[in-house]
Simulated assay, not measured.
Amino acid sequence: MSRKLGLHRPILDGKVNFPLCLAPMVGLTHVALREVMREYLPQDAFTIWPTEMLNSRRVPDENLETTPETMRSASENGLVPQILGNEEEPIAKTVKRLIEWGAEAIDINMGCPVQKALKHNYGVALMGDPSYAAEVVRMTVKNSTIPVSVKLRAVGSTKEFDELLTFVSGLRNSGAAWVCLHPRTAAQKRRGSADWEQIKQLHQAVDFPVIGNGDVQTVEDAINMLSETGCDMAMSGRGLAARPWMLWQLGEELGFAPPLGKENQKAPRTPEEEGAEYGKVLLKLIQASNKYFGPDRAMRKVRFYVRTTGVWLPFGNALTGVCAKAQTIEQMLELVTKFFDVPHEMSQRTELRQ
């Protein structure tokens, strides 16, 4: 397989050369997880990296170096923080601060279906008003010296594709550099299957990059999405958070050199190899979380990670219990190490939709 899979249109002026990225997720896409995941990125591969969702009304007054959602390591590149917002003044202040912080693009969330976002006319609420959504993009682009992208959800069905195309065209005309489509409606949330046909139709109908999101749980899913829809990148949320080595696996398929430090190794592939690798990821995450957040917050974040991603392990509930039992970071490391002393097989797929 050649490196030509995906990336038919340039993202970040062509700097992005790897067609798989992590989705922004509240409570998960923080600096500690990004640090652990980057160890699996092939050499010379460049992709985009999200933050957790950031409220544009709060960012202007926050200390970005100590706020958990905006903490970053000095060496991180490709950062594309995601913001919620609908008013120009806080958006302008937020964009300015995030550019100074090191953002390489700004992503606008128009896909969040939670009630709090709907109440303030953020997130997916913007999809109900195409002209208003386009105005939010316009005001963000106006105040930004870096690209602005949009993450959005689907319309009800492919029969309503004209509605989606009209909406996306408005974003494009307002200056959006690319869009990411998660083809589930707000009402579906994480239920049902993602309608990849909408990603395919959208990519064929527009002239700028389209990232596909939804139901990417394995590297095979990522390859299938890229090949079946023609999209420029595949984005994976909890699936990639649970399997960071998907980056390594895809790199092998595309001819990239293995990640640094893994030069003479092959990516884990069998259920048992993946189960063991999950254990290694978890131990690294505990240590990285402690480094950035301190012990109390670190243990909370690790427990959330295990509750979210342990569903791919047959004994994920037992692992959740093990992490809940730990009273200290040291005890958590000891208990997790002991848990993975016994081989565990990782499932290919889970009913938990992406």
Rank of each mutant, 00 (worst) to 15 (best):
N109W: 06
T328V: 06
Y292L: 01
M37C: 08
L171R: 03
Q354Y: 13
Y278P: 00
E197T: 04
Y278C: 04
L171V: 09
E345C: 14
P209F: 00
E263V: 07
L152W: 01
V16S: 02
V16P: 01
G237I: 10
P42T: 09
V26R: 10
E220Q: 09
P295W: 02
Q115P: 06
M71E: 06
N264Q: 13
L33T: 06
L202C: 14
D44P: 08
W49R: 03
R349E: 07
E69P: 10
L250P: 12
T145K: 15
L181Q: 06
T70Y: 07
P68S: 04
R300Y: 09
G239T: 03
P90L: 07
V114G: 05
P209A: 05
R34D: 13
H344D: 01
N121T: 10
S144R: 01
L333V: 10
A23D: 05
Q249N: 11
P81K: 00
G85I: 02
A74D: 15
S174Q: 04
I223V: 15
A92E: 14
D207Q: 10
N63G: 04
L22S: 07
K15S: 12
G294T: 07
H203D: 13
F18R: 08
A32P: 01
Q204V: 05
M71T: 04
E160L: 12
K116W: 02
A241W: 01
Y292C: 05
I83N: 06
L118F: 12
A326Q: 08
G156N: 11
P50G: 04
L333H: 03
M1F: 15
P90A: 07
G156K: 13
R57V: 08
E252A: 06
T218C: 00
L12F: 01
V148S: 01
A326H: 10
A187C: 11
G102D: 05
S144L: 05
E62F: 15
V31D: 03
L335C: 03
R300S: 12
I211L: 15
A45M: 13
F339A: 11
T320S: 14
L283S: 07
D221M: 05
P60K: 07
E273K: 05
G251C: 08
E62L: 15
T140C: 11
F315Y: 13
V206L: 13
T66D: 03
E252S: 06
P50W: 00
Q43D: 02
K284I: 09
V179A: 08
G27S: 14
P24H: 08
A298P: 14
A134W: 00
Y278R: 04
E89F: 13
G275Y: 15
A187K: 15
H203F: 01
V216L: 11
V150C: 12
D13K: 10
K338C: 11
V150K: 09
L165K: 09
P68K: 05
L260V: 14
V219H: 11
M53K: 05
E76F: 13
Q354T: 15
E160A: 13
N143R: 02
V137H: 02
A234K: 04
R57W: 10
T308I: 05
H8M: 12
E197P: 00
G251Q: 05
T145P: 08
I286C: 10
E39M: 01
L352E: 11
C231I: 00
D296A: 14
S75K: 07
E220S: 08
V36H: 05
E345Q: 14
P147V: 09
L282K: 01
T185H: 08
T337Y: 02
E135P: 09
A241T: 07
D162T: 14
F46E: 15
M346Y: 00
C112Y: 06
E253C: 14
